[in-house]
Write a protein that binds this DNA or RNA. Structure first.
Length: 561
RNA sequence: GGUCCCGUAGCUCAAGGGAUAGAGCAUCUGCCUUCUAAGCAGAGGGUUGUAGGUUCGAAUCCUACCGGGAUCGCCA
C-alpha cells in the first residue's frame, strides 16, 4: 500500500553466509499492511529486486526473508575501492559535521593517574576517534575539578612538601593529606619561587597561591600520563571558572527556577540504612524526579557552598551554550547514580533540544598470570597508569581496554597481553598487519616490480581471486564501512576491536591454507598476474587493519619482535 | 530498602528485534616438525538466571522474582 511505513525494514548481511550476501525482512514487515502472507509478498518482491544488475539471485527463505546473492563480479570492485580510497575507505559522513562534545577522564587533579582511570580514558578517546571518522566535529574535553575541598587538601599537602624542601623535618604525612612523593617536586618549585615568604603568611593567604601552582603541576603530570597513552584533550574546562567573575551556577539555578524546577525542602533519609549522623535539613533542591530520578537533588551544601552537582549542571549548560547539541560523558561505574540527574539537567536546561549519552565504564581487575594484583591506596601499592603502560605498551593497553563492552567488567592480565598467541587478540591483530607487510617485503625477491603496491594493484585482474577463502576475506573487508557506522551510532568502539579480530582471523586462515596448498600462497612464483591480484587483497586487508587500529588508537606494526 | 549495571558453552566473552545463538581458551580426534616461526583441520559442548507479557519473530523490549557488582543529602 502506498501509505505503508517502511520503518523497520532492514537490508543487512545475514550472520550465516548460507543466507546470501544481503537479506531483507521487507516482506515480513509489510505483510500486515499489505494483507498478504509474508512468503507470498516475498514472491512478488523478489523478482523486482533481482532486476538490479549486482544481484545474482533473490531467494525466499525461512519465515519470509528475501536473501540476495550478489554477482561475483561485484566483489573485486570492493578491493578496487579500498585501494583507490586508501585512508578514506570506511570514512562516513553520517555525522554531518554535527558538533559533539566527548568528556572523558576528568580525574581529580590531585596526583598521577592510576589504573582505574585507564579504561574510561581509552574508551573516551577511541569513541572520539570513531565519531571524527564518521563525520562529527568532535571536541575532546576534560573537566577539571579544581573547586572542591580536595584541591585544598592538595594545597596543604604541597605546603608540607614546601616546608620539607626548605629543610624542615616534616615526619610522617598526617592522615587526611596526600602522602605521595610526586608532591616533592611541587614543594621544591614553591621553595624556589617563594623562598621563605609563604612561611610568614596565614593559610588564607598562601593557600590560593600554593593551590594554583600545585594544580598546574598536577595537570602537567596527568597530561604526561595521558600522552603516554596517546591521548590529548582539546579543552580543559575549569570548574572554578564557573564562579570566577560571573556566577554561572547562579544563572543555571535561576533558569531552572523560572521553570519551577527549584524549591527549598528536605529530603527523606535513605531507607534500609541507619545513619546516626542524619539530621533533617531544609535545602535548595532540583526537582529531578520530574525527569524520572528517584530523589530530588541538593544544590547547596550546609556550609553554603554549591554542591558538585550544581557545578556540573552549570558545566553542561555551558557546553550547550558553546554549541554542543550532542554531549557524551564517560564516567566510571561508581558514578552511575549521577546519570539520571545529569540527563534530567540537560533535558531541563535545553528544552529537550540536546542529547546527553552517558557511557559507564565498569571496573578493571588486574591480574598477573591469573593471580589478582592486590592494591591498596593506604599501603601505597596501587598501580599507576604509567606503570601499566611502561610494562605492556600503550597499544596493548588500549586494545585490551576496548576488547570488551564498556558496561561489562574487564579482567586485565599483564601476562596475557604480552603473550604471542591467538588467545591474545592484540597480538593476533597486530600480527596480521605485520604478516601483510612481510608479504610485501618478500615479493621483492620474486617479482620486484610488484613491490610498489598501491594504485597499480587496483588494475590487477581481481576476478582471479575466486577461492572461497579469498572471497570470504573480501566480504569481510566490504563490511568495514557498515561496522564503523554502526559502532559510531551506538557509541560502541569495542565493535571495531571485535571486527579486527575477525578480519585478522580470515587473513591468517587464508595464509595457513597456503601451507597445504602452495597454489593458494599470496606469492605464487609461476604466475605473476595472480600474485598481483593477491597482493591487491593483501594490501587491502592491511589498509583496513590499519584504519581500524587507527580508530582504536593502536599502532599498526610492520614487524613484530 | 531505593536506583543503576551485569547474568549467554566448563572458563573469558560476542551477537543493530531476525533464520540452526557465535568466537577464543579448555577437552577430545586427526595432521604438521620448517614449506609462509609464534601451528593447522575437525568434533563434542546451550531450556541465553527463573516465570510471565508484547511481536510474524525475543539473549535483545516490558513486568515480577533470583543471583552478583556499584551506589545512596553536606566527597568528587
Amino acid at each position: 500500500p502506498a501509505d505503508a511505513s517502511i520503518e523497520g525494514i532492514t537490508l543487512e548481511a545475514p550472520k550465516d553466509a548460507a543466507h546470501g550476501d544481503l537479506a531483507t525482512n521487507a516482506a515480513m514487515v509489510l505483510a500486515k499492511p499489505s494483507g498478504l502472507p509474508p512468503r507470498d509478498l516475498a514472491q512478488r518482491l523478489a523478482p523486482l529486486i533481482a532486476v538490479d544488475s549486482n544481484v545474482a539471485a533473490a531467494e525466499i527463505a525461512g519465515p519470509g526473508f528475501i536473501n540476495l546473492t550478489l554477482e561475483r563480479a561485484f566483489w573485486p570492485r570492493v578491493l578496487r575501492m579500498v585501494l583507490e580510497q586508501a585512508g578514506e575507505y570506511g570514512r562516513s559522513t553520517i555525522g554531518q559535521g554535527r558538533a559533539v562534545n566527548v568528556e572523558y577522564v576528568s580525574a581529580n587533579p590531585t596526583g598521577p593517574m592510576h589504573v582505574g582511570h585507564c579504561r574510561g580514558a581509552v574508551f573516551g578517546d577511541a569513541l572520539a576517534n570513531l565519531l571524527a571518522f564518521t563525520g562529527h566535529a568532535v571536541t575532546r574535553e576534560y573537566y577539571v575539578n579544581d573547586a572542591g575541598a580536595q584541591v585544598d587538601v592538595l594545597a596543604r599537602s604541597a605546603y608540607l612538601r614546601y616546608r620539607e624542601a626548605l629543610g624542615e623535618d616534616i615526619g610522617e604525612i598526617p592522615e587526611g593529606l596526600y602522602p605521595g612523593d610526586y608532591l616533592k617536586p611541587v614543594g621544591e618549585a614553591l621553595a624556589e619561587t617563594y623562598r621563605r615568604d609563604l612561611l610568614e603568611m596565614p593559610e588564607s593567604e598562601w593557600l590560593p597561591l600554593v593551590r594554583g601552582i600545585a594544580l598546574n603541576k598536577m595537570l602537567d603530570l596527568i597530561q604526561d600520563d595521558l600522552a603516554a597513552l596517546g591521548i590529548s584533550h582539546d579543552v580543559f574546562f575549569s570548574e572554578r571558572s564557573l564562579t570566577e567573575g560571573h556566577d554561572q551556577i547562579a544563572d543555571t539555578i535561576a533558569d531552572l527556577k523560572a521553570q519551577g524546577l527549584i524549591y527549598t525542602g528536605s529530603l527523606p533519609p535513605p531507607k534500609g540504612k541507619v545513619d546516626e549522623e542524619w539530621e533533617d535539613r531544609e535545602q535548595l533542591l532540583f526537582r529531578s524526579t520530574e525527569f524520572g530520578d528517584d530523589m530530588d537533588r541538593p544544590l547547596v551544601k550546609s556550609d553554603g557552598a554549591y554542591t558538585y552537582f550544581a557545578a556540573d549542571m552549570a558545566y553542561h549548560r555551558d557546553k550547550f551554550r558553546r554549541g554542543f547539541n550532542d554531549m557524551i560523558d564517560v564516567f566510571g561505574a561508581d558514578h552511575s547514580g549521577h546519570v539520571r540527574r545529569m540527563k534530567a539537567t540537560v533535558a531541563a536546561l535545553t528544552g529537550g533540544r540536546a542529547t546527553l549519552d552517558v557511557k559507564l565504564c565498569q571496573l578493571v581487575r588486574l591480574f598477573r598470570g591469573g593471580e589478582p594484583v592486590k592494591m591498596s591506596k593506604r599501603a601505597g601499592t596501587f598501580v599507576t597508569l604509567r606503570e601499566v603502560v611502561d610494562e605492556v605498551g600503550a597499544g596493548s593497553v588500549r586494545f585490551m581496554m576496548l576488547y570488551r563492552k564498556n558496561d561489562a567488567p574487564l579482567d586485565f592480565d599483564f601476562a596475557k597481553v604480552t603473550e604471542q598467541s591467538r588467545d591474545n587478540p592484540v597480538f593476533y591483530v597486530q600480527y596480521a598487519h605485520a604478516r601483510a607487510s612481510s608479504v610485501l617485503r618478500n615479493v621483492e625477491g620474486v617479482f620486484p616490480d610488484l613491490r610498489s603496491g598501491g594504485r597499480n594493484l587496483a588494475e590487477a585482474d581481481l576476478d582471479r581471486l575466486n577461492d572461497d577463502s579469498e572471497l570470504a576475506l573480501i566480504k569481510r573487508i566490504a563490511h568495514f564501512p557498515r561496522i564503523v557506522e554502526a559502532a559510531a551510532a551506538a557509541h560502541e568502539p569495542h565493535r571495531i576491536a571485535f571486527y579486527l579480530y575477525d578480519l585478522a582471523g580470515d587473513f591468517h586462515g587464508l595464509w595457513n591454507r597456503g601451507k597445504d596448498s602452495p597454489q593458494l600462497r599470496f606469492i605464487y612464483d609461476s604466475d605473476r598476474e595472480l600474485t598481483r591480484a593477491r597482493l591487491a587483497l593483501v594490501v587491502s586487508t592491511q589498509r583496513v587493519l590499519a584504519l581500524g587500529l587507527g580508530i582504536l588508537g593502536v599502532d599498526a606494526m610492520q614487524e613484530l619482535h
